[in-house]
Design a protein around this nucleic acid. Structure first.
Length: 265
DNA sequence: GCGACAG
DNA sequence: ATCTTGTCGC
């Protein structure tokens, strides 16, 4: 019962620990040195409100040189087998993400993104291996974690200054680093980044795999249009959400069709 | 023990 | 994640 979750998370923690040894936290791609970024991928999942195990995963590729226009889109309707457990998001979302990515690489290799962004964290994670890093290591690709909220773990303090630090961010691109509060005395795990002038809250960026933090921050800024969330993940969110709505509508129609309670004569 | 807790 | 209206501003 409760202990079953404990035993599975213990196993998953070991997998995360093992994968962490394969993690690369610096630039390995040529575009990173040249600063010639064009194709950026974004992945997101939307859930059915009535049944959160039913979801639609969407992968989008945007072109930086074409005003962030979406040049590729694909979605997958899935039944997730694992619940959401904080710290283990990857074990719930990895499979559908991988399916979409492998399909893209095999059918449209010319549109393979130079970097892939995820809703969630990279190394800014209790065990240093969030969804973005998990995916990057498993597929040997360059990834970035873009979380809308800060995951507060024992080793990361949202110190008393966090609020004032956020208020000190004044222009798009401004950021401050999120550090580990213990042990290694302040190892940098990510950054709180102000993406637009209007945004009151920052976005939390962290290395996924095969990229340095400063380059990751730069890449995210390259994908900011008018919104707080970078276009790749924002578009993936919009499109997956739209599809989940359509799915719910069709379900309601089926129910109405066979339900006698609405007939009155 | 208590609170916190990406999506 | 999802539940949701109005409101302010360009």
């Amino acid at each position: 019962m409760e202990s079953e979750i404990e035993s599975v998370t213990a196993l998953w923690s070991q997998e995360q620990f093992t994968m962490k040894s394969k993690l690369i936290i610096s630039n390995t791609e040529k575009w990173q040195a040249d600063r010639k970024l064009n194709l950026v991928g974004g992945m997101d999942i939307s859930f059915c409100k009535a049944d959160s195990s039913i979801a639609i995963c969407t992968l989008v590729v945007c072109s930086v040189s074409q005003q962030l226009k979406v040049v590729y889109e694909d979605s997958l309707h899935v039944k997730l087998s694992t619940p959401y457990i904080p710290g283990f998001l990857a074990f719930r979302e990895f499979e559908p993400c991988l399916s979409l990515y492998t399909k893209l690489t095999s059918k449209h290799s010319e549109l393979i993104p130079q970097v892939l962004m995820f809703d969630g964290n990279g190394i800014l994670h209790p065990r240093g291996l969030g969804l973005a890093s998990h995916f990057g290591v498993c597929t040997n690709t360059c990834t970035i974690g873009v979380a809308k909220n800060l995951y507060q773990m024992g080793s990361i303090l949202r110190d008393e200054n966090h609020f004032s630090q956020i208020n000190s961010l004044s222009a798009p691109g401004d950021h401050f680093f999120i550090k580990n509060s213990e042990g290694n005395g302040g190892e940098i795990l990510g950054a709180a980044l102000k993406t637009t002038q209007e945004a009151k809250r920052p976005v939390y960026i962290s290395i996924g795999h095969r990229i340095g933090l400063e380059t990751a921050i730069w890449a995210v800024m390259q994908c900011i249009d008018r919104y707080r969330i970078p276009e790749p993940t924002r578009q993936a969110d919009i499109r997956s959400r739209q599809l989940i709505r359509k799915l719910e509508e069709s379900k309601n129609k089926k129910v109405d069709q066979y339900s006698p309670k609405m007939s009155f004569h």
